[in-house]
Simulated scan of single mutants.
Amino acid sequence: MAFSNPSREQIKQLLEDTATIAVVGLSDNRDRVSYMVSEAMKKKGYRIIPVNPNATEILDETCYASLSDIPFPIDLVNVFRRSEYTPEVAEEAVKIGAKALWLQLGVYSDEAASIAEEGGLTVVMDRCIKVEDSILLPQGKQA
């Protein structure tokens, strides 16, 4: 069966239920889309955890080399990596007990989606989390 993203209402609920987002491929370069999106999400109240083996700190948070190195629970894994790298990220997201896997705009992998869904994760692909959050939660998350 072909993959389809959750409904807008389901995505809204996912965002409302998310507090901590691990961002795989988060760059420390302020000009990169991953940085801009993550900075905007942090300003909206999400805790952003950078996953980048080549940096020590981004957005005032400690960087981790991999999802498995993060010593606390992660709600959602947001991926800024090329599609061919996402199946291994999906495997790691399942392993750490994340609730959702989000592949950014332009990133799509049926294999990663299958791995994550079989592991019980909600999957969103080829969508920008910042755009969805702005549309679905324009006033921010409800307390």
Rank of each mutant, 00 (worst) to 15 (best):
M1I: 05
M1V: 08
S4Y: 04
P6A: 03
Q10T: 09
Q13H: 08
L15F: 12
E16D: 10
I21E: 03
G25I: 14
N29A: 12
D31H: 13
R32M: 10
E39D: 15
A40T: 11
M41G: 04
M41A: 06
M41I: 14
K42Y: 04
Y46C: 09
Y46V: 12
I48A: 05
V51M: 10
V51Q: 06
N52M: 11
N54A: 13
T56L: 09
D60M: 00
D60A: 11
F72I: 02
N78D: 15
V79H: 05
R82F: 11
S83N: 03
E84A: 11
V89W: 01
A90I: 08
A93Q: 05
K95T: 10
I96R: 08
G106F: 09
V107H: 03
Y108D: 09
D110Y: 04
A113C: 10
S114C: 01
I115G: 07
I115M: 04
G119F: 08
T122L: 15
V124M: 03
D126F: 00
C128T: 09
V131H: 07
D133M: 03
I135K: 13
L136F: 11
L137Q: 08
L137P: 06
P138A: 12
P138W: 12
Q139E: 15
Q139L: 13
Q142S: 14
A143Y: 02
